[in-house]
Design a protein around this nucleic acid. Structure first.
Length: 883
DNA sequence: ATGGTGCACTAACCTTTGCATAGC
DNA sequence: GGCTATGCTTTGGTTAGTGCACCA
């Protein structure tokens, strides 16, 4: 290593990229240098130990520190260096970027997990259809509540008393019974009047179905992330696993069981809709919570376990608590108070008392909760779970009941029996967001089928759509399930009975649209035309709007296309509905440039449908399209293709300016179907490179055909047929693109001729190959046999003869059995007596029938090795060293 | 203190049509 | 001399993703 100066230069050069650290060991005035692989995330990189690549840091360690045992041995073995600070500061920490492989893996996991969750949903749905459970649950229902099944025009309000009763009688008890089959778990939950959130929600579905109400079991599929996640803790499946051990395993609980009796009746009567309690009430209630003996002990044990998981370890106790941990503890306390299965306060205090310095600790958990509750209550009817960053408490399961008396045409009404919420679809997203959950997939299950109803609950679709699997796959998965679901839930809704015509439905759409306009702070009137165009597929005639499924589809589609305009610019980057010019890519343009939907931070917002992708003329050719004559380019951009110095003069023929380095781009509306010059007189029209670019069948000149066989060129040449090599793509090799050729393009009339010739040629080649292989096989057989014979001959001569002192070696031959290897003799000119391979190999070969005769004519002498080779006519040869 | 926003930076991805030399 | 096989070498623009400062 050179001096410090050089080292520091290297350090500067490798600023922020240090992979290794070196330490200079001063020993006998000769600095030694060694490196330590840092704890860099990029571990898969092979360390490069060339000096020019390595990044060195200097440090001095006294030699004596290595030699404290008095060992003067010059070799240093196993040096351990301890650094005061970590080799890399957080600032220098390199982020490991996700690779395509990571993404693919994550997507596979995501899909598999989705399928599992759908299967789970179907299982629950099937269990909810069980007549025994339905009957058992129905038997518990007070008689006056049974009347609801007689209601012809069911409304959400009519369901409130049932929800109230259910909520008073069935509570979330937190313990997840994932180990049990769901059917028996549901039975147990019914007996115990409570269970996991999933079971309680399912029981509510059972109840509604028992009352002959068209009901779906709705579940938020809390699926593993579609994108590779660096932080495994954030992965939902890890999350859920972790929380399954706790009281609130992917809980849906938002309001306590104890409190809701009062709050339910009050709020439900107050607004007739929302019977949600608030945390302010919870705070008051919590001070009066009575410990219930029997359940307490169990719960305490469990809470102890849960707390133990996060804090009971002595190491953890001493560690300063993270915010999330504290929040989790508060969550825990809330959970216990909510279910009236609370641990004694001293326990709670103990659980939070180990981080006195924590800012959160300075106020009591309930004060904190009160503050949060106040915040959440500031937004009208907000669901009071907005505490903590932990992903617990989010609503994951609920029911949807079809209320024919709602909304003129009937409506699927959200009913969260766990939290006693009726028609709270607009609040689900807020509740989920408060618990850091996104409603990526909300799926309704009925009749063994499933339907994606995410749109109903998710207003900000643009936020969740990047986290959903691509729609083609998802739609394909759900298509058959959707039919099943539709069959189970569809019912004819004659429009005339509802006094609603198709125009009214479109009026509804218009209303939604205008709502969207209002939120977008802009007039959308002119957008209606475009909107209507996009809705064409949903604009079903009055005659076809005859079932709930179709109506719901319209409703969901309307929601899909009337999302409010985002208020931040970045949301427009990949927004499926809206776009601003700022976030268009190099190859995108607005065409037509309008209508204007609104403004965002001074940027005009356009519909995403106006964004068109541009391509060069050549690129359009690949799509089987050509740019119309005299079309001016829609956009001229700087070329990013590398021009070699030798070909830099090449001028872009499409460029308006005519200068090099720019590319003209055209939109699809400027193209027409490709019209290539046809083949004339058996001549294939070729491009400037003397080939045909076969990106697709559309790219073939009329009258030509692409023959995708190897070794066709010599055949075509031999027949004198005009052809062109078919280039089918590129391969990136050695840092550059290399064209890939596959077969040739010939005129159609020569297709049969050339294929026949090709078949003959291939046949001939095949036969030739077989012959070649046979020759090789025989040659190898001959070599093998020869070597064996020689070996035996030598054994006989030098080993056997020691005993018998016989010079002549007997050798058995069998003429009759050697027919199989006649070719051997043809190749090698052997003796007339044919060697039987089977005999030689199977027997000792020591026979008395043949005596080798080594004629002097067949001898050869190698002067270098001073050996004489003698050959018998049977093919046996021996080498004799002359002394 | 916290979360949202926007800018700046980074790394993955996409791009896309040789050349020199040795051996036969 | 011509043909073929082999080895060499790895750009730079675009864009999605991430970190961080700033602000409400």
């Amino acid at each position: 290593m050179a001096g410090n100066e050089e080292s520091s230069t290297k350090q500067k050069k490798s600023k922020g990229k240090s992979k290794f650290q070196s330490v200079d060991i001063i020993r006998d005035n000769q600095p030694l240098k060694f490196r330590q692989i840092s704890t860099n995330n990029n571990l898969e990189e092979e360390p490069q130990f060339e000096d020019n690549d390595a990044e060195w840091e200097e440090g001095c360690i006294q030699y004596s520190s290595f030699d404290n045992n008095g060992n003067n041995d010059k070799d240093i073995k196993g040096v351990t260096v301890e650094f005061d600070a970590l080799p890399e500061s957080p600032k220098k920490k390199r982020i490991r970027r996700v690779t395509a492989e990571d993404k693919e893996y994550a997507e596979l996991v995501h899909k598999a997990h989705l399928l599992c969750l759908i299967a789970r949903g179907r299982l629950i749905d099937a269990a909810c259809d069980d007549p025994l459970i339905q009957a058992a649950l129905l038997s518990l229902l007070p008689p006056h509540l049974l009347k609801i099944s007689e209601t012809s025009q069911l409304t959400a309000n009519a369901l409130t008393p049932i929800i109230s009763w259910f909520h008073q009688n069935f509570h979330v008890k937190g313990l997840d019974s994932a180990e049990k089959p769901f059917h028996s778990a549901l039975t147990s939950a019914l007996e115990a009047h409570g269970g996991s959130p999933e079971e309680v929600a399912a029981l509510s579905v059972v109840l509604f179905r028992a009352l002959n109400l068209t009901t779906r079991f709705v579940s938020v599929l809390d699926v593993a992330s579609l994108k590779p996640d660096h932080d495994v803790d954030e992965l939902p499946y890890f999350e859920s696993r972790r929380h399954r051990k706790g009281i609130f395993s992917s809980s849906t609980l938002m309001v306590s069981g104890m409190s809701t009796g009062a709050s339910l009746s009050k709020s439900s009567t107050a607004n007739g809709k929302n019977i949600l309690g608030t945390f302010v009430k919870r705070e008051n209630l919590s001070t009066d919570i009575q410990v219930k003996d029997s359940l307490e002990s169990n719960q305490l044990k469990h809470s102890d376990q849960t707390i133990g998981e996060t804090q009971n370890s002595s190491e953890d106790d001493k560690r300063p608590k993270r915010k999330g941990d504290l929040e989790f503890e508060m969550q825990l306390q809330m959970a216990m108070s909510s279910t009236a299965l609370i641990a004694p306060e001293r326990k709670l205090e103990a659980s939070t008392s180990d981080s006195p310095s924590s800012p959160l600790h300075s106020c009591s958990p309930f004060k904190k909760l009160k503050r949060i509750a106040e915040e959440s209550s500031s937004s009208s009817q907000a669901i009071s779970t907005a505490f903590g960053s932990r992903k617990v408490g989010a609503p994951l399961y609920w029911a949807e009941v079809y209320c024919s008396g709602e909304n003129m045409t009937g409506k699927w009404v959200h009913i969260d029996a766990v939290n006693a919420i009726v028609d709270g679809e607009l609040k689900v997203e807020a509740a989920a967001a408060a618990c850091k959950k996104s409603l990526r997939y909300v799926v309704a299950f009925a009749g063994h089928g499933a339907k994606d109803v995410t749109r109903r609950y998710c207003a900000k679709w643009y936020k969740i759509s990047p986290h959903r699997v691509f729609s083609e796959w998802w739609n394909a998965v759900l298509s058959s399930l959707k039919e099943l679901e539709l069959r189970a839930t569809s019912g004819v809704v004659p429009l005339h009975q509802c006094g609603m015509k198709s125009t009214d439905i479109m009026g509804e759409k218009s209303k939604h649209l205008n709502q969207g306009c209002a939120s977008g702070k802009s007039s959308f009137a002119e957008n209606y035309v475009n909107f209507d165009k996009e809705h064409q597929k949903f604009a079903i005639s009055s005659s076809s709007i005859d079932n709930r499924g179709a109506l719901e589809d319209i409703e969901l589609a309307t929601r899909a296309l009337t999302e409010p305009l985002p208020t931040n610019q970045q949301a427009y980057r990949n927004h499926p509905l809206y776009a601003i010019e700022k976030w268009l890519t190099k190859y995108q343009i607005l065409h037509p440039k309008g209508p204007v939907l609104g403004l965002c931070s001074g940027h005009t917002v356009y519909p995403r449908s106006c964004v068109q992708t541009l391509h060069t003329k050549e690129r359009w050719l690949r799509e089987g399209l050509q740019v119309k004559e005299n079309e001016p380019p829609s956009k001229v951009v700087k070329s990013n293709s590398r021009k070699r110095s030798g070909q830099a003069v090449e001028i872009d023929e499409f460029s308006e300016t005519g200068s090099d380095g720019v590319v003209s781009l055209f939109g699809k509306w400027q193209t027409e179907p490709l019209r290539l010059p046809p083949a004339v007189d058996g001549i294939v029209p070729k491009n400037e490179r003397g080939q045909v670019d076969v990106w697709s069948e559309k790219c073939l000149p009329p009258g030509t055909v692409h023959l995708r066989f190897p070794r066709l060129v010599p055949v075509a040449k031999r027949l004198g047929i005009n052809f062109a090599p078919a280039m089918v793509g590129f391969e990136f090799r050695n840092g550059r693109s290399v064209p890939v050729y596959e077969g040739i393009v010939v005129c159609t009339e020569f297709k049969e001729v050339i294929l026949e010739a090709y078949a003959e040629e291939e046949q001939r080649r095949h036969e030739e190959e077989i012959r070649k292989e046979e020759r090789q096989a025989l040659s190898r057989w001959y070599q093998l046999l020869s070597s064996m014979v020689i070996r035996q001959r030598l054994n006989n001569t030098y080993v056997y003869n020691q005993e018998s002192e016989t010079v002549a070696v007997p050798f058995k031959t069998e003429k009759k059995t050697c027919a199989d290897i006649t070719n051997l003799n043809e190749i090698t000119e052997p003796c007339q007596e044919k060697v039987c391979a089977t005999k030689i190999i199977g027997s000792d070969m020591l026979t008395q029938d043949h005596e080798h005769v080594f004629l002097t004519d067949d001898e050869s002498f190698d002067e270098d090795s001073m050996t004489r080779s003698k050959r018998c006519r049977c093919g046996v040869s021996i080498q004799v060293e002359e002394l």
